[in-house]
Computed example of a mutant assay.
Amino acid sequence: MAQGCGVRYGNVFHRHQTSKATELSEFCGAIGSLSLVVAGVLTAALLPVLTPFFSEGI
């Protein structure tokens, strides 16, 4: 099994392919789900902080 397959599926293909990763292996599906959750939490936490830096020119 290629290392990082769960992370790739979780971040790139999102929920649908994360379920497909579970068909490859339970571990791959778990890592895919975890990376999807971490990406969502980081987005929700960092977006309000970083928005003022990107919206100054608007």
Rank of each mutant, 00 (worst) to 15 (best):
F27G: 13
E26M: 13
R8N: 09
E56T: 14
G4L: 04
S33H: 12
T22L: 13
K20Y: 09
L36C: 04
G4E: 04
P52R: 00
I58N: 15
K20A: 13
G32T: 00
H16G: 14
R8D: 07
G29R: 02
M1D: 10
L50D: 01
L50E: 04
E23Y: 08
N11M: 10
P48A: 03
L50W: 08
I58S: 13
F27M: 14
V49Q: 05
L46W: 05
L34H: 12
G40W: 03
L47G: 06
A2W: 15
A44N: 11
P52V: 02
Q17P: 00
A39T: 03
V37Q: 03
V7E: 12
E26I: 15
S33R: 11
S25L: 06
F54K: 07
N11D: 00
L34G: 11
C5Q: 12
G32P: 00
S33A: 10
R8S: 08
V37W: 05
N11K: 06
Q3N: 10
R15V: 09
L34Q: 11
E56M: 14
V49W: 04
T51Q: 11
G29I: 04
F53V: 09
E26L: 14
Q3L: 15
P48D: 01
C28T: 13
E56C: 13
V41E: 03
L46G: 02
S55C: 06
H14V: 04
L47I: 04
P48G: 02
V7F: 11
V7N: 10
G32F: 01
T18Q: 07
S35L: 04
E23S: 14
C5Y: 15
E23Q: 14
F54Q: 10
H14Q: 07
V49T: 08
T18E: 06
F53P: 12
V12Q: 12
C28W: 05
L47T: 07
S33C: 06
L46T: 06
V12W: 11
S25G: 09
G32I: 01
M1H: 07
S19M: 15
L50V: 00
A45N: 05
G29T: 06
A45C: 08
R15W: 13
A39Y: 00
V41C: 05
E26P: 02
S55W: 03
H16F: 10
V38G: 00
G29Y: 05
A30L: 14
A30E: 13
F54D: 08
L36S: 05
T22G: 15
I58H: 13
E23N: 15
V38A: 02
C28G: 03
G4M: 03
F13Q: 10
N11L: 10
T22F: 12
F27T: 15
G57N: 11
S25V: 05
V37P: 01
E23F: 08
F27I: 14
